[in-house]
Amino acid sequence: MNNETDRDWADKLAQGDPSAWDKVYQKVVVAELKSPKIRQMLLKYSLSEHDLVGMLFEEMVGRQKISLYRGEGSLAMWLRKYIRGFVFSSDPRKHGELSIEGIASLNEDSNQTSFDIPIDDNRVFRNEVWAITHRCFRELWAEDPERAYILLLKTRFFLTSEEVKEFLDVSTSANVDQIFSRSVKFMRAAWPEKGA
């Protein structure tokens, strides 16, 4: 991997190679999260680093944007611009980006049949986000439970694609990435509808 050129890396990303995507996590997402402003916005918009990897996967593999990389400048810096774009346009009330991992921990001690009465604007917003997320997740579950399990395993329990493949007996880790990407896309699409 040390002698790998950016072109090699881009080709592997296009093929959904798990090790190439692990490298994205380390060299692109983790690197970008060193910015306090980015971290603050992630928290504000209830996004996780795993959401960002899923969004990047959808953009690069799902929409084949990786083919636009021409080798001008480093691939890591090129991908970081996408990450910044995702974060800056992630207001959940407008665009539907969300993290079930970030939201669920706020409600660990309750369940969805009863809410504490919110006492400040932040909690009102958080509870609203949680309720909307629950409705979106319910639809994902009804569509295909396996997708919902994969979303949970990756965003809530931080399993790698290889671990999810073993856990759910999916044929390949590339399939896991594709299903995960579709799940994130589904949740994003459902969000504005449920939040309206």
Partner: peptide, 24 residues
């Protein structure tokens, strides 16, 4: 059964109550 969605709990003297997966 990982693709099966129907879930419910039946308790004595109570009606069958459906459920679902949540992200808690």
């Amino acid at each position: 059964g990982k693709h099966e969605t129907p879930i419910s709990l039946i308790r004595p003297n109570l009606p069958k109550v459906p459920g679902e997966l949540t992200f808690q």
